[in-house]
């Protein structure tokens, strides 16, 4: 977990293939309040471009992206 970001909920999407990470995160973001941040963990390399595309379209914000080997962590703030 990133030290400066307050994460409300963590979603383990590791091992899932397209389109599941984006489908799950679009549902998951609705489980927190507007202004809160979720952490989504994926191992799908496609999510590196898909998550920003989803965030931009849905009107949410990716606050931070971290990468450790194959693991990708997105910190996404619910804005809408």
């Amino acid at each position: 977990m990133s030290d400066d970001i307050q994460v409300t909920k963590v979603f383990d999407l590791k091992g899932l293939a397209c389109p599941m990470p984006v489908v799950k995160v679009s549902k998951g973001i609705k489980e927190v309040e507007v202004g809160q941040v979720i952490e989504a963990q994926t191992t799908d390399p496609g999510s590196l471009s898909d998550f920003p595309a989803w965030a931009k379209t849905s009107g949410n914000e990716i606050v931070k992206t971290e990468q450790e080997d194959k693991l990708i962590k997105f910190y996404i703030k619910r804005l809408v």
Partner: peptide, 8 residues
């Protein structure tokens, strides 16, 4: 189709 729903 499912991706599109995710995109709203």
């Amino acid at each position: 189709a499912s991706g599109a729903v995710a995109m709203g």
